[in-house]
Amino acid sequence: MSDDLPVLGHRLRDMDDRVLRHPADRAASAALRSVPGLMAVARKLIELGYERALRQNLLASSVRLSAQQLPDVFDLHRSAYTILEIPRTPELYVAEHPVGNALTIGSQDPLVLVHSRLLDQLDADQLRVVFAHEAGHVLADHVLYGTVLEILMEMGGGALSRTLPTALPLMAVRNALLEWKRAAELTCDRIAALVVRDPILVCRTLMSVTAGTAGRKLDLGAFLAQADDYGQQSRGLTGRWRRLTLELNATHPLSVHRAHELMAWVRSGDYERIRDGDYPRRSEAEDPDVKAEAKAAADYYRERFEGAVRDVAGQAESATKNVADWLQKTLGGDGPR
């Protein structure tokens, strides 16, 4: 990194990102790691060139930003990696799209794509939130699973689907990754709040993106009250099941749920403690307790879904073997053209 990077006056120095992980993220990640063969499928899809094809699709229909191309936007993106002390800033691309969204892909070499709708809709501070959130995916090492999910989403109806038979048994793997992805978003909302040092700004950004209009036209207090109402209604088995069905097939949790979860974390005191520098350091971190994480996953999913997600994980376990066999027999080592 060069010495002239834009900074916001603070660094989250040597922070062990595990302290920021939402319980749902920890549980979902542990559940994915427990599915035999899933990593083999992920690596095989990347090895056979599907990540390359996905990147090519994105690059062919977007514009790469830099110090010469929309430099103000690029600086907002770059500063997030400076604050998080991530050594390399990913390339940033913008593409025309009527729905505001951003994503980060690239198992080895991440890139960030932002939809033009967000650039038109959000002010500079809110764009800082978006870029900090995407940087959170890099910090928390979400990018491998996220890239595989994007590949599978494309297989379901995008350009890559034309290279594959429709009977490819990937639905169970896709569903398990979608559940993980929704959990990972909650972690990155926390990271964004620490980068911009303002969880209220994160909530305002969520409100603006959800409503599809500028935040200055909306009442944040009313939105936070709505998030609290939603949190109350989502309690109990019936409420949790209703939320699961609402979020099914979505890559992101409902925005009111995200705001509720973020503010609950703030009220716990963890946000201020970490913001003020009281957090474990990467240089002192011990290896994760795999058994404890697996137990946390089982406890979390048992409480939240009463077996629903375990069924998905079970389907994924059997599907991954079929997928791996299919990839080996049908594609060999050639991969997509």
Rank of each mutant, 00 (worst) to 15 (best):
Q108D: 15
I274H: 00
A167H: 09
H260I: 01
A172F: 08
L12R: 02
G277Q: 09
Y93N: 09
W241F: 13
Y81N: 08
G49Y: 00
L144M: 12
R216E: 08
L178H: 15
D189W: 00
L327D: 10
T213I: 05
L8P: 01
L76C: 14
V138Y: 01
G335E: 01
S208R: 04
R43K: 11
E317L: 13
G314C: 08
S61C: 02
P288R: 10
P253T: 07
Q126K: 06
D287E: 12
N175I: 07
D17C: 01
G212E: 05
I46T: 14
L220F: 02
V35I: 15
A313P: 02
A95G: 03
R117S: 10
D16C: 04
I83Q: 01
Q126G: 00
L144A: 08
A319R: 10
A27R: 05
G212I: 08
V99G: 02
K291T: 08
W180Y: 14
A167V: 02
R310T: 14
D289V: 04
L331W: 01
R275G: 12
G215M: 03
R204V: 02
I86E: 15
E96N: 12
H115M: 04
V130P: 00
R13F: 02
D109F: 10
I151Q: 06
R304K: 12
L224Y: 09
A227I: 00
Y300F: 15
L254S: 07
V63Y: 05
L194P: 02
H115G: 10
G333L: 06
V99M: 08
T251L: 10
A159D: 11
A60G: 05
D125Q: 14
A319K: 09
L45E: 07
G156I: 06
R13M: 02
Y279V: 06
A319Y: 00
E272A: 13
P36Q: 11
H252Q: 08
M263H: 03
Y279T: 00
A184D: 11
A192S: 12
D287G: 04
G156D: 12
D16L: 12
L8W: 11
P71G: 12
Y93R: 13
A53E: 10
D289T: 07
R174N: 12
S255R: 07
L76Q: 13
S107G: 12
Y81W: 10
S116N: 13
R78L: 11
H257I: 07
L201R: 12
V195N: 04
L254K: 03
D287L: 13
M171I: 13
S79V: 10
R310K: 13
K321T: 14
G37E: 14
V138D: 06
A264F: 01
K295G: 04
L327Y: 06
K321F: 04
R174H: 11
C188L: 08
V266Y: 06
D311T: 14
A176M: 15
V196F: 00
T166W: 05
A167L: 09
A222C: 01
